[in-house]
Write a protein that binds this DNA or RNA. Structure first.
Lengths: 121, 121
DNA sequence: AGGTTATTGAACCGGAAGGTTATACAAGGG
DNA sequence: CCCTTGTATAACCTTCCGGTTCAATAACCT
């Protein structure tokens, strides 16, 4: 799993405006102007946000005359969730013990930023 | 749930170095120098990354003489996961239909970036 | 005390992020 | 055709990010 995808996805999610856009798209396709409406922000600014979301593969765009409808693409969200899932054991009860338990299993791929392989519940 | 927490958390996760640091900490406490070792990067750079992680509440720090051991704090990871969980339906089979289904439940708190309330599996 | 080790802080730099305005472009509707 | 609508691009500004180096601080060791 390329780190770049996670980079782009988490970067996209780090902005409240973009999260709001995703939330809006969760209830169906929307055009750029529709997406821009709720925000006190120029339309080009929204276009930029959309490009960030697109770069992360979180949205795809169609064509309806001059309109450019956006649709939610949740696949990267799954990727992100899968990554986070590996830490689930650490926020559930008893993680302190697990912490020490895992301390003995030397870590291999830390440089790649991979989550602990044995951390799944 | 303050958006700022999600902002800080996703921002922290958006960098591969920081994700690697978290992965390392998953196998137990570590000092700054230990954390810095695998990276081709100056040690102050790591200190900055640690500050970003700390700002998001993803790590806490102790004291052991001149050392400042870091420990993983997974709570914000849970917060992030909870947010993402709301979209689970969209990457699971049949999400296209769900898409249209939810289109009829007008969205209230889109401005806040809240995920769709009805999207839970 | 003095030196070494561990870590932070300050000043700086290049480049990316997030916003603006103004302009171009593309496509439908009188 | 022209005008209006929807969207993207360009140029610009300011702030933040990720890195650097060098200096400061803190605590141990002898």
């Amino acid at each position: 799993m390329s780190p770049d995808l996670l980079d782009a996805t988490f970067t996209a999610l780090a902005d409240p405006t973009r999260r709001a856009i995703l939330a809006r798209l969760a209830s169906g396709e929307a055009t750029v102007t529709e997406l821009a409406a709720p925000f006190d922000m120029s339309q080009p600014a929204i276009s930029k946000h959309l490009k960030v979301l697109e770069r992360a593969g979180l949205i795809s765009r169609g064509r309806d005359a001059q309109r450019r409808p956006c649709r939610l693409e949740a696949r990267p969200l799954k990727t992100a969730t899968d990554w986070l899932e590996n830490y689930r054991a650490y926020w559930e009860d008893g993680y302190r013990r697990l912490d020490e338990l895992l301390a003995e299993l030397g870590a291999e791929d830390e440089r790649r930023g991979d989550p602990p392989s044995g951390a799944r519940s």
